[in-house]
Structure formats: C-alpha cells, structure tokens
C-alpha cells in the first residue's frame, strides 16, 4: 500500500496450457507470460515492460516436468527450474554438462526461482544455458491456441531479448537430444566475478565417430546480438581426428568467423571477446577430447 515498485496489472493463473493460450490471444501484446518471474519482474521494475496482464504459468501442473531417459530426448517443461535440472539424478548422469553450466549462474536462489525455459525465452546472448543447449541441438516446443510448432533453439532468438514468438504463443518445453554413448559436450565461460553474467562463452558438442570427430556443433555466447554457431570451425573438424594442431586451427577459424562480432560494453571489450573465442574453443574442444579419452578408458 505504501511502497509498491510495480504498476498495477491484471493477474491470471490459468490451470491449463489451453487456458493460458486463450488468455494470451485475448490480451495480445499487452500480456506478459510469467514462469519463475525473475526477469519479468525486473523488466517491469525498470519500465521496459508495462503489461496490462500478467499470465502466470505457475498453476499449470502439466508444465512442471523433466522427462529424462538416456535413450530419448531430455524434455524440460516450462516450469522446470534451473535448480531442478541441476538436482535431477538423470540429468546429472546423462547430461552432466547442463548441471555444470547451470552452476555458472552463481546464485542458488536465482537457480531455484528461475526456469530453464524462462532463461531461454529471456533471449540474452549471454545465456549460459542457451549457449550449451544450442550446441546440443535443443528445440523449443511452441504452443498457441490450437497449434503447436517446433523451433530449433539456435533460430529462436532474432536479436537481444527478441524471439520468434508471435502474439499468443508461448513455449511449452525445450527438448535436448540424448548424448548417447558417443557424444561429448563441454561448456566454458569467462565472467568478471564468478556469479557475474558471462562475458564470452563457448559450448561444444562432438560426436565420436571411430576416434574421429563426427557431427560437431560449436556455439559461442555474448559475441553477437544472438548466440552464434561458428560453422567454418565445425566444418574443419568434421571427420578429423582431434589432434592439438587441428583444435588450434579450428579455434583460429572460430575467432575469425564473420558471425563473431562482439561489442564493447561494461563487461568486456570487443577485441578481448574475439580473442577469447579462440582460447575458449580450444579449451572446450580439449576438454571434449579428455572426456572421450576418459570414456574410452572406462
């Protein structure tokens, strides 16, 4: 009654996805979807968002899930918190890199309140989770009244905090392909202090094909308006043995890739970020090689 940081808004708590979709359709761009609420509340405090209606998903029990079976995709529902994937034994066992990446978000409270899907929908190019998930080939399941579509995560953002979601649409879940026994992933990042937002990061996924590099995806965060893949480096690696010299060359190609066009901001400068793409790609790939060798040794 006295201090209230937020403006008034209509508040809805639909019980089903269909109900949520209906509300989204009727309020159009004046509605904001709230999962964990962290980023929405911040943008409302600053006035970047002034929704007439806030549609909370928190009462939709069907969105609170993590379906994890090593043979199949990992399915993370829109209400699954970052903490919950970190705590999931299945995720720890089969998608350990996600647990490690989640912990790059320093605050346990933020991981407990924030959802994985919310983090991805926020659309920041510095998202740790989005960077590794793009490398892992994750896909967003998008619903709207009466329709559903799938968007590869790497196409989901079109700019900083801008996504392909259209009026009335929301993300129901994100799907992460199984790593199986032959794929290895690694995530490395740099930040000013350990809990700070990432200044540059690299996620890689390599499929081991008889000791050589099969399919490979390298995603780089915080160096462009959206998280990018460095395809020239990927092409170089495909079919090659991951020798130190090959990794070094791939890292160099990654740094030089035209998609890497970082800016200077409060966290770092463009030149440093660009150079760190090379260092981090090299480190991530070296880590993958170590993991492959470790798996082989078992």
């Amino acid at each position: 009654m006295f201090f209230r940081a937020l403006r008034h808004f209509e508040f809805f708590e639909p019980k089903t996805v269909a109900e949520a979709n209906e509300l989204l359709l009727s309020y159009g761009h004046q509605a904001s979807v709230m999962a964990g609420g962290l980023s929405l509340i911040q943008t409302m405090k600053t006035g970047e968002k002034k929704p007439e209606a806030v549609i909370s998903l928190q009462k939709i029990d069907s969105l609170k899930f993590i379906d994890s079976d090593n043979d199949q995709d990992l399915k993370i529902g829109a209400l699954a918190t970052i903490r919950s994937i970190e705590k999931s034994r299945e995720v720890q066992k089969h998608w350990a890199v996600l647990v490690q990446t989640a912990r790059c978000i320093g605050s346990v409270e933020v991981r407990r309140m924030g959802t994985v899907v919310g983090n991805l929908c926020d659309g920041t190019p510095a998202s740790d989770l989005a960077t590794i998930l793009i490398a892992m080939g994750a896909k967003m399941r998008v619903t709207s009244s009466g329709a559903e579509r799938e968007v590869p995560l790497e196409n989901f953002c079109v700019g900083p905090h801008q996504t392909v979601l259209e009026e009335g649409e929301m993300v129901r879940e994100v799907r992460v392909p199984s790593l199986g026994d032959h794929s290895f992933a690694s995530y490395v990042n740099l930040a000013r202090t350990k809990p700070d937002i990432t200044k540059v990061s690299v996620g890689v996924l390599v499929k081991n094909q008889n000791g050589a590099c099969g399919d490979v995806r390298i995603a780089v965060g915080a160096v462009a308006p959206v998280i990018v893949r460095v395809r020239k480096a990927e092409e170089l690696l495909r079919g090659e043995k991951l020798k130190a010299s090959t990794i070094e060359e791939a890292a160099r190609l990654a740094q030089e890739d035209v998609v890497v066009r970082p800016i200077t901001d409060i966290r770092s400068n463009a030149g440093y970020r660009k150079e760190m793409v090379r260092v981090l790609v090299e480190r991530a790939l070296t880590d993958v090689v170590d993991k492959m060798n470790g798996a082989h040794a078992h």
């Binding site: 000013r192 202090t193 809990p195």
Partner: peptide
C-alpha cells in the same frame, strides 16, 4: 580486480550490483 565504475556521457552504466560487481564468496 573487479570494481569498475563506468560512466559514458555523464550516465553511470554500472548502476546495480549486476553491473558493478563486488566480490562474492566465490571470488
């Protein structure tokens, strides 16, 4: 190592604990 007050054209850019980083327990 960390604390860096950045002002551009008179405007403080580092106007929060997310931007002006003081050491956490992990640092």
């Amino acid at each position: 190592l960390y604390e860096d007050t950045q002002i551009i054209h008179g405007k403080l850019l580092t106007d929060g604990f997310d931007k002006y980083r003081i050491p956490s327990m992990l640092d």
